[in-house]
């Protein structure tokens, strides 16, 4: 690259620096800390994490929670996304805006709303026990409770990710299938689902990854000892108290990072496969 060219690219440099400082360098520091053991580099921190019962449980819970979220989003979200794609005009704009906001509504306020509904004295709990006798819903910090709350955020996210690709499912295909005598189910089994599957899986993966890192809601609802423990919350707790030292937080972060890189790679592969069909 000659000097003049270098000069003309100069306006791009500040953003590159910001990206390196905020997004790349901190990750390298995490990697560096996680690999540090007494007297040099090694995998000691990772061995510690994988041999600790608490950490294995947190990792297991996070994986289970993320699988549930991804599965629920694919199963519930796919028909809803298909319904949304065919919605037209003003109604579509309003519904999309609503979904957009819901997807970013994950804070203590949302946790409080669910407490008003399914908490011990919540209105749904009350109605349920008036109809069917005494009942207690699973607590907000349990696997089921957490899944219910987080679906409020992740289902809209899944829909927003899905819509652009689902809109590519052309109406002419449906017409063509009907012209050649294929019914509703046959069309979906042989044309619709195979076309959408790579996208649905890819978007499910994205939800899986975001669930692994979910923070605000689990932070407020998993404070009681009966609640489940997630890896993201363990990282946050370590950073606040540093009882376990920074190595553990860094090691858990690196595990999430490696997982994210693997997921991204699979996501890209699936997207490419999906685009080839269309």
């Amino acid at each position: 690259m000659n000097l003049e060219r270098l000069g003309r690219t100069a306006p791009a440099v500040p953003l590159l620096v910001l990206g390196l400082v905020c997004l790349i360098f901190p990750l390298l520091v995490l990697l560096h800390i996680s690999l540090q053991v007494r007297g040099g580099y090694g995998l000691g921190n990772f061995i510690d994490v994988f041999s600790s019962g608490v950490d294995r449980a947190a990792l297991g819970n996070s994986l289970q929670f993320a699988l549930w979220q991804a599965g629920l989003c694919v199963v519930l979200g796919t028909p809803i996304a298909l319904a949304l794609v065919r919605l037209k005009g003003r109604a579509r704009g309003v519904v999309m805006s609503f979904i957009n906001v819901a997807s970013s509504f994950g804070g203590p306020g949302l946790a409080f709303a669910f407490m008003l509904l399914i908490g011990t004295t919540g209105v749904l709990t009350t109605i349920w026990s008036q109809l069917f006798g005494q009942a207690e819903f699973p607590s907000l910090g349990s696997m089921i409770g957490l899944n219910a709350i987080m679906l409020y955020v992740h289902l809209p996210l899944y829909l927003m990710l899905s819509l652009p690709s689902y809109a590519l499912l052309r109406n002419e295909w449906r017409e063509a299938a009907r012209m050649s005598g294929a019914g509703f189910w046959r069309f979906w089994r042989q044309v619709g689902l195979p076309t959408l599957a790579p996208f649905a899986l890819g978007n499910g993966l994205q939800i899986f990854m975001w669930s692994m890192g979910a923070y605000a809601i689990p932070y407020v609802v998993t404070t009681s000892p009966a609640s489940i423990d997630l890896i993201s919350i363990e990282i946050g707790r370590d950073l606040e108290s540093s009882v376990f030292g920074v190595e553990r937080a860094a090691t858990l972060s690196v595990i999430l990072m490696l997982l994210a890189i693997a997921m991204m790679w699979i996501y890209r592969t699936l997207q490419r496969r999906g685009e080839r069909i269309l």
């Binding site: 905020c22 997004l23 975001w210 979910a214 999430l256």
Partner: peptide, 26 residues
Amino acid sequence: WFQALAVVPFALPWIVIAAGMQLTVK
């Protein structure tokens, strides 16, 4: 370069970025 950088906050949990930043600055 920018496209690669832009993927990072999209793919990685923000708590991990926060952890990296905190430990780096400290």
